[in-house]
Amino acid sequence: MTAEHVLFFVFGAVSLIGAISVISFRHPIYSALSLIVTFFAQAGLFVLLGAHFVAAVQVIVYAGAIMVLFLFVIMLLNLGTLSAKSALKGKLKGLAVVLGVLLAIQGVYIAMTAGTDTALESAQASTEVVTTYKIGELLFSKYLLPFEVTSLILLAALIGVIVLVKRENQAEN
């Protein structure tokens, strides 16, 4: 039982509980806050995996920017407590739960067997910490084109949001 084990189980448990809370709370604010908890726990897991840069981005972008957006919208729409009732009725809801369980079993099974996968078996897991320098180097050499495309996607999203909201205003006027 190393420190890594302990930390993994702690972060793992927190993220799971957070996730379950997201889908359980009636009030969206609570759900959003639970999601933030999950994100922080995941950032911890990333640190455990030696991905310090990703962990930092996780906190800054997800827990910071994206969640703020969520909270902002929730407040903007002034949503009160919602019924936890599913949109699905009767049998379909049961079916959804059964499907979720099945999916979980399959996913876990695949994950368990992945440890015995030959490719992963033979490889010596690297323990070294990935530096930001290295990520930057890769980003501007091997992944230059995807990187540029990503910037275009963000630009498109930016314009899209403006258009969506602006048209609404005109329609109201």
Partner: peptide
Amino acid sequence: GLVQVYIVSMVIGIVLFLAYYL
């Protein structure tokens, strides 16, 4: 018109696909 009904059918597909794979 209920988005979740569509998602249910999608997940059914995923589960079946994974079952076949496994």
